[in-house]
Amino acid sequence: MALLEIQGLRTYFKTQEGTLQAVDGIDFNLDKGQALGLAGESGCGKTTAALSIMKLLPANGYIAGGKINFMGQDMARVTGDKLRAIRWRDISIIFQGAMNALNPVKRVGEQIIEPIILHEKVDEEVALKRVKELFEMVGINPSRIREYPHEFSGGMRQRVMIAMALACKPRLVIADEPTTALDVMIQAQIIALLKSLQKDLDLAMIVISHDLSVLAETCDVLAIMYAGKIVERAPAGEVFYDPHHPYTRGLIAAFPNIHGEKKMPASIAGNPPNLINPTKGCRFYDRCFMKQDICKTKEPPLVEIKPGHWAACNFVPPMKG
């Protein structure tokens, strides 16, 4: 049995203009120790998918359909204390924007010690020892536990967040844009750190980013989202070497290639569709270079095109047999 099973998940928001279909029928499984990358442009529903799993949706958001199964439990039925326990001990999340997630007037050490004491029911001394171990693990000098968040640089703050997420030895860590707003050198450091932690601790991980490069190295499987749907899902290497969906191809082509000739990378012109009453056909229609009339009306299902490689495009034929 998979650690996490997501089937047909739909998460909607009530807004003044109508119902916004932020996540609209996504499926994936995640095994113990496996890392999955969720990629796609801003607004495609990545964070909403993560918040749905954590049951942390804002008041106007609700799960409109589908199933989330975590360690054999139907998350729809988990509430109260049990939910709170799952949130720290079993699943933890590293939020986008580390500065906002940390309390600016509290020493970083305290911010990690508290949940450890609360959830593991240990005394302060044990918790402190654990925090020091965690700091070592994420590459921060343990002597810094008495410092405040503002005394840390962006990259160091992100390491604090990672330490915090690992505090109660979770099985699943969700990292939402863990390197966005960091410069490329620090980004490379954080990605390398996440990768080694995932391996050493045998963590299951969902890494979320608009930037495929962040996921290429850390993840076993990538799911490319567009306008609330998964349009391609495959092993990470496959996505790069044999992308099928025109959107995936566009995302890859958007990277400058410093080892190639000097030329401007392609971009995906246009904007994603409005998710309130989206059109019937393929949601990528407006921006697709392969579009035909049929795409206006026929929504392509996600089909397996070769073992373990799925895509949702009217012009990508399913695997035979």
Binding site: V184, Q187, A188, Q189, S213, L215, G237, F240, L251
Partner: peptide
Amino acid sequence: VVPTPDPEMRRNQIIL
């Protein structure tokens, strides 16, 4: 360390 989605390329990084 220029970001690339090419897993091959990423192996040769010099991370300071």
